[in-house]
Design a protein around this nucleic acid. Structure first.
Length: 425
RNA sequence: GGAGAGGUGGCAGAGUGGUCGAUUGUACCGCACUCGAAAUGCGGCGUGCCUGCAAGGGCACCGUGGGUUCGAAUCCCACCCUCUCCGCCA
């Protein structure tokens, strides 16, 4: 959510920022609603002030045994007007907030121009895609041949876009997650968190998925939603809180399942486990002071890159362009891993700086060290570190051998009982 | 799921219809005393918003949302959360 005061003072700036995203101007509309709202507040408050005065006088008059009837008549009149204004004020406030909640974050000045993913800018590449002297298979075929990956039976019980992993592949997924968590906690300074997977709508409004993107989420029959990413519970660790500045930066990580309805992506990535309704991800979230967030964003991205490097998976880093940026983010770097079967790089991590956008929505503040009064909104950042399912896919494809077996990356072998290869049994 | 207790300012803890936005303690900040510190004394110390060039003025907030009333932290209703006990359960 953007600062209404800021919008009031920088309407042209806002509309220009929206235009970069390909979104329509809203400042005139917002300011119109806000002006009307404030006019109502002003009138209402002067009536309240008068009512309070008269009510006090009534108390005084009655205490002395006088006749308070004329005063009470005046209050009655004021009340009629107030009732109408109160309803109007409430309606206007909801309208303003409703619009504010649908305005995307203002982009960082360095975000490249562009209408869609073709406008993304490659920052650097790491590693060299392996040359295969046999026909490469995609991960779904590799998994099927190993008899350790079953989409058909998953469809029987759950429908499309689900997978069942078995044996060494189930363990491999666990190994990948464990390796990531260990690296982030032991080396990168993150604290492991095991958060709720069901959250209230307020939590999703806080991170920006609601109210606009409800159709992407799974809603339960109780008043809760399945998380689409642990960014939601991790960022909400500071919701409605005032944290001590000394606690910042707060770095947390979690390994959780993620649930996405994938509405609107029918036909895309239908084969395999690239785009499932349920997948596992290790998430990184940082809560920090505003002046730290730029550096923290770079740091977080490096933490994610380190995982790919340790796994020796070729990847490239991109700066997302204006048109491809997520709703709540001011700046995003994507990491894309090389997939031999597609002969292209595919997203495996997305690291973003939300600035104070989410903090405003969830009222997450901090008290700067040394200051006894006054609070400021924190900055929030999140990044995949990494998507575990897609990492499994990348390993299967990049480490496949002609005989159908798959080598296990060195750093994962200790998590795989010392094995260095997965073979059909 | 049942029964009970409770949600008030950073914390603790008063306050059951009218100068209560809120007693007091503690923490914190400033000043005094001191060589310095402790102790002590004095003063200050919540948040959001409206209005105003400013000084200032005003409104709201005692879990949340409604209601009663001229007037609500105080009365009524609903809901949420926490704690204790019972039941059920991985």
């Amino acid at each position: 959510m953007l600062d209404l005061k800021w919008i009031r003072e920088n309407p042209a700036h806002l509309d220009a920022a929206l235009k970069r995203r390909g979104a329509a101007a809203v400042s005139a509309h917002v300011i119109e609603l806000d002006t009307a709202h404030r006019a109502t507040i002003t009138e209402l408050q002067s009536l309240q002030s008068r009512r309070n005065d008269v009510s006090k006088q009534i108390g005084g008059v009655k205490a002395k045994g006088g006749d308070a009837a004329p005063l009470m008549a005046e209050v009655a009149q004021i009340k009629d007007r107030m009732t109408a204004l109160e309803a109007q004020e409430k309606e206007q406030a909801e309208k303003v907030r409703g619009v504010l909640l649908t305005i995307p974050n203002v982009l960082h000045a360095d975000v490249p121009e562009g209408a869609d993913e073709t406008g993304n800018v490659e920052l650097h590449k790491w590693g060299t895609p392996r040359k295969f002297d046999f026909a490469v298979k995609d991960h779904a075929d590799i998994g099927a041949a190993l008899k350790l990956m079953d989409f058909d039976q998953a469809a029987v019980m759950s429908g499309a876009r689900f997978v069942i992993l078995k044996g060494a592949l189930a363990r491999l997924e666990r190994a990948i997650a464990q390796f990531m968590l260990d690296t982030h906690t032991d080396e990168n300074g993150y604290t492991e968190v095991n958060p709720p997977l069901l959250v209230k709508d307020t939590a999703l409004i806080g991170t920006g998925q609601l109210p606009k993107f409800a159709e992407d989420l799974y809603r339960t029959n109780v008043d809760a939603w399945l998380i689409p990413t642990s960014e939601v519970p991790l960022t909400n660790l500071v919701a409605e809180r005032i944290v001590d500045g000394a606690e910042l930066p707060m770095r947390v990580t979690a390994f959780t399942p993620c649930f996405r309805s994938e509405a609107g992506s029918a036909g895309r990535d239908t084969k395999g486990m690239i785009r499932n309704h349920q997948f596992e991800k290790v998430e990184l979230v940082s809560i920090c002071a505003p002046e730290e967030s730029e550096a923290e964003h770079q740091r977080m991205t490096h933490c994610a890159e380190k995982i790919l490097q340790r796994l020796e998976l070729p990847y490239r880093a991109l700066a997302l362009c204006a048109g491809d940026m997520g709703f709540g983010m001011m700046r995003t770097y994507d990491l894309e891993v090389w997939l031999p079967s597609q002969e292209t790089y595919r997203e495996i991590s997305s690291c973003s700086n939300a600035g104070d956008f989410q903090a405003r929505r969830m009222n997450a503040r901090y008290r700067p060290v040394g200051e006894t009064k006054g609070t400021r909104f924190v900055h929030t950042l999140n990044g995949s570190g990494l998507a575990v399912g897609r990492t499994l896919v990348a390993i299967l494809e990049n480490y496949q051998e002609a005989d159908g077996s798959v080598r296990i990356p060195t750093v994962l072998q200790r998590y795989m009982g010392g094995k260095d290869r997965i073979t059909a049994s």
